[in-house]
Design a protein around this nucleic acid. Structure first.
Lengths: 276, 276
DNA sequence: GCCTAGGTCCCGTTG
DNA sequence: CAACGGGGCCTAGGC
């Protein structure tokens, strides 16, 4: 069965998808421009080639691909394999489409970068009038590990008192500054993933900076992560720093437990802001 | 105009795209499973919710989205904005689809990670039988900058002689080792992008390692990049290291010029391998 | 605007 | 297999 050259409207109460089957070059360009003006996304399936000039430059010869023009100006060229788009523009690009001697030319500009997709044949174009206002909730991030320790410092060690977070030193930001039970400063760096040498280097830089600042020799550095690789552990220990295994799930349990308190705290903080 | 419930085949000589308009849950699941068995990509437009468990965990409530199931098992859930998929599985996932009480459930597993997309309504499914064997060529990478300097060391400075590249020290690999006109060792670190403090830290680690190894105090460290940010430059200079501006385009010109020589060299190297 | 750091980073390369 | 570094990284948050 092969139908050609008509438009389909899909969606029950509303026109969520409008399909253009085997559109001509001019029609396809019009569809893209019209969607862009209404801030709607478009997908295009067909035979194209792509060139990019900007941070590097690249050429992609003719092939069949899926192109997505999104409502924020991002532009993705996907092959039928691979996580990443083979070519793209991040959000914020100005996207234009025109017909040029039988081809559809989509060009995108963003600062000093530019991209050009030339479609020699378009099998299908579809404009998307999508509703999607759901929030995306994620659990188990590095920030949440840090929050868990703020609320329950014993996750790292007994007697720990939290001083501040995101403490700025010359070489960056220390995730958490605390005092241990013997009154020594502790710089804590959290990693949600197995700690690597780069993470240790980061902690080394922070602690050496802190030691330079305070002349206090007793400053401790703790790398808190679910695990640490061998080379990293050796470098850590050789540098006089410590590793503390911190389980993501345990952190999440703590956060769940402290949720009421957290809400209360956030209420109090807001109150302070008003009275300040 | 509103057509419902038929299949469309697009593509001139070949069935490049097969469209399923408003498919039922069972039909859609079958389409996905059949495409998976033939290693073909599928796109699905419709109303879905997504959950993910793995390195973190996430929930995405109901909304209209584009889902791409690729032939290598990667699975992307795209909203109508943003460069990145809101949920995804990288290549290598096992993807299954089934119909469950009127919904299409797509599940993907990959090691300890799993993802589940439930479509409450599918507007459109399309299987892609795409041909795309074009190579993707990119110019202006860090490796190419290094190669340019190997062939024309004067890009960094007069009288420089290249010794080796990717020289391993404890803290990593020095991009390029060379001797300057006065016989001093030079460690060169290339960056294709504006150099940051992290890059300087890397070079500091390398040079201090080299100095420890050779006891030679005259070892120089050079950071070669198109530009360097202020803080990084200060850290660099304070650490007794040097910055050399290296233009990407200039490097590319050099590579173009030396292309004949490079081919010759590669031929000779191959010959060496055979004779070795 | 720059800069810093996280990411379900992905991805290739190498030991 | 793990480990390491690059990426047109992208993205969020500070300043």
């Amino acid at each position: 069965m092969c139908f050609r050259g008509f438009v389909l409207v899909l969606g029950e109460q509303r026109e969520a998808v409008r399909l253009f089957n085997n559109p001509g070059a001019q029609e396809c360009a019009d569809v893209i421009m019209s969607a862009a003006s209404k801030r709607r996304a478009v997908i295009v399936l067909g035979v194209c080639e792509v060139s990019y000039r900007g941070r590097t430059s690249s050429e992609l010869a003719r092939g069949e691909r899926l192109v997505i023009v999104k409502e924020d100006g991002s532009l993705l060229v996907h092959r039928t394999w691979g996580y990443k788009p083979v070519n793209y523009m991040p959000p914020g690009a100005m996207v234009y489409a025109k017909s040029d001697s039988g081809s559809v030319v989509i060009s995108a500009k963003r600062g000093s970068e530019s991209m050009r997709v030339v479609f020699h044949k378009v099998y299908l174009a579809a404009t998307l009038n999508f509703r999607d206002d759901s929030s995306f909730e994620q659990k188990g991030t590095e920030a949440q590990m840090r929050d868990a320790v703020v609320f329950y410092p014993e996750l790292v060690e007994k007697g720990l008192r939290v001083l501040t977070h995101e403490f700025q030193v010359k070489s960056g930001f220390v995730d958490l500054m605390a005092l241990d039970s013997r009154g020594r400063l502790v710089a804590i760096e959290f990693k949600a993933n197995p700690a690597k040498t780069a993470d240790v280097n980061q902690l080394i830089a922070y602690v050496s900076r802190l030691r330079a600042l305070s002349k206090e020799r007793g400053i401790r550095g703790v790398l808190a992560a679910p695990s640490i690789n061998k080379a990293a552990r050796k470098l850590l220990v050789d540098s006089g720093l410590e590793f503390k295994r911190l389980d993501k799930d345990e952190c999440l349990r703590v956060l769940e437990e402290f949720k009421p308190t957290m809400s209360l705290l956030s209420f109090i903080e807001k109150g302070d802001e008003h009275s300040a």
